[in-house]
């Protein structure tokens, strides 16, 4: 790690597991649950959040000394909203179908609590480079959970991954379907997202006993 000092590297690796924004800090749940029925949507969402959080952290950290603290929430919201508009316009231009699937949830990145949370907790008190790393780290931690949930929901729900029929063709009865396997359509419905995240939390906390709540 020539580029990053040990302390800086910790900013990236910490949020991946022991300080994960979703399972430990409980931030940014809404989008994590709503768009994970497909793996592709989850990945795009993770990348969008990474862009907004990385850039936003840098911007806030650059102007942190000139924001009057009373109106900082509005300033933060404006910065996020501007970045989200960029993401939304890019998605509409290059991935129209996907932007329809994500529907209002692109806009809801604005109120994704991870973003406001990191601005408040980190960018307001640290330099731009460290804030950037913190943003990327937290977005990665968020992205990992999204990808895990998306992976299981798409695999078990429609038998595909990123649209590829990895388990065989349900109509032609090839692959697993030849053995009588059926897709669990229930995985695609909203309640299962909650239960899958609940199970991820369960697994994580059984592996690391320090995280258990009393």
């Amino acid at each position: 790690m020539g580029l990053l000092s040990k302390k800086d590297a910790k900013l990236i690796t910490d949020p991946l597991a022991d300080n994960n924004p979703i399972t430990i800090q409980v931030l940014g749940i809404c989008s994590a649950l709503a768009i994970t029925a497909q793996l592709k949507a989850s990945i795009v969402m993770a990348i969008s959040v990474m862009f907004v959080l990385g850039m936003g952290n840098v911007v806030i950290s650059l102007i942190r000394n000139i924001i009057p603290s009373k109106i900082r929430i509005i300033v933060q919201l404006t910065v996020v909203a501007a970045l989200v508009i960029i993401v939304d316009q890019v998605l509409k231009a290059f991935a129209y179908e996907l932007s329809k699937t994500l529907s209002v949830f692109v806009g809801l990145i604005i109120t994704n609590c991870i973003i406001m949370g990191r601005f408040e907790a980190f960018a307001l008190g640290n330099g731009p480079w460290r804030s950037f790393l913190d943003g990327i780290g937290n977005a990665l931690g968020y992205g990992i959970i999204l990808v895990i949930v998306g992976f299981f929901r798409e695999l078990l729900g429609s038998g595909t991954l990123l649209g590829f029929k990895v388990l065989g063709d349900p109509i032609e009865k090839t692959g697993l379907y030849a053995l009588g396997y059926e897709n669990n359509g229930f995985m695609l419905l909203s309640p299962m997202a909650l239960i899958v995240v609940g199970i991820i939390i369960w697994v994580q906390r059984s592996r690391n006993k320090d995280l258990i709540e009393d």
Partner: peptide, 21 residues
């Protein structure tokens, strides 16, 4: 123990969502 707090809340919400469906 590992489910206490957040984990069980998620799962209960999931069950309630099934009810609301």
């Amino acid at each position: 123990a590992p489910l206490r707090g957040l984990g069980i809340t998620f799962i209960i919400t999931g069950l309630m969502a099934i009810g609301f469906m």
